[in-house]
Structures are given as C-alpha cells and as structure tokens.
Design a protein around this nucleic acid. Structure first.
Length: 145
DNA sequence: GCCAACGTTGGC
DNA sequence: GCCAACGTTGGC
C-alpha cells in the first residue's frame, strides 16, 4: 500500500510539463528549504504516489507522479542539511482539480493544502487521494505499477 | 501588488 | 530560551 503526497511547484520554476518531458528518468525534487517538507520527503518510499500541484498560477492539481528514489542529500547543497527525492510523471489529471474546488468539497476540509497552504511537500490521506482522483477524472487502476 | 501566515534569525 | 524583526510563500 503506497502512501500519498502532494508536491507543490510554481509552474514558472518547474512545471508539470517539464516533469513529463523528463520521462522515466524523472527529476530531483530539490530546492526544498523547510524542515517539515524535508521530513515528509524522508518518509517517502519508492512507489509512493503524489499529486503535482501548481501554485500561484493555476492553483490546481494537474498531474500524478511517482517517487522513484528515496530522499538523498542535495548535491548542490553545501550545508548538507537538505535532501531531495526523485519523482517521475505517471499520468496527467484529465480535469485539473482547482484549490477552489478542493475548498468547496467538505470531504477535503482536512487537507493540508487547505489548512497549511505554505507547506510545499504534504501528506495526503487515502480518502483524500481517492476523492481528488475522482474529481479530476483519474482512473486509479491505471496508476498501478 | 498586497498582505496574512508562517518560518527563521539573531540580539538579549 | 524568548521574542522581535525580517524574509518568503502563496492566495487573493
């Protein structure tokens, strides 16, 4: 049973399309400079799934990605404090789920995205995962490894 | 562009 | 160790 996560990125900095273009090689999720977010990354396992959320522009869940490498030190980080996981795109969300729609759904009022919008790497419960997938038109069986 | 919320820094 | 000042994020 994989765990679920939500990863935020400003599309100007790194967009879903860019992750898709990396293919199976994926990309290091670097640049995280927040301890809570780092601890969440440390808790990730290979095969866990995550929503890819566009902040600022779009403000919606646009894709599903998979964790392909455990947390490891950031090569460029000289302090040695910060780590990143590697992620690869799995599938787009056919109908991107907006923050507005998430806020409007009572089933999702416990989501970290709603209550702690600044945290860039967040856990997502299995129920929340299912509900957002349903709203986005994601067929879950297609996400199986 | 503004500002609220949050995290970090640094003086004491 | 407290807390004021500051910086950053991200929704609006």
């Amino acid at each position: 049973m994989p765990a679920y996560w939500l990863l935020k990125s400003e599309p100007d900095a790194f967009s879903w399309d860019e992750l898709v273009s990396r293919g199976a090689k994926g990309e290091s999720w670097d640049g995280v400079r927040n301890y809570q977010a780092r601890n969440n990354m440390r808790a990730m396992k290979v095969g866990d799934l995550g929503f890819f959320y566009h902040s600022n522009e779009g403000k919606n869940v646009v894709g599903i990605c998979r964790i392909i490498a455990l947390a490891h030190p950031e090569a460029k980080d000289e302090t040695g404090k910060w780590e990143c996981v590697d992620v690869a795109a799995v599938a787009p969300v056919p109908n991107p789920v907006t923050l507005e729609a998430i806020k409007a759904n009572p089933k999702l009022d416990g989501m970290v995205l709603v209550n702690n919008s600044r945290l860039s790497v967040q856990p997502v419960s299995a129920d929340e995962w299912k509900e957002v997938c349903r709203m986005g038109g994601v067929e879950q069986r297609k996400l199986k490894v």
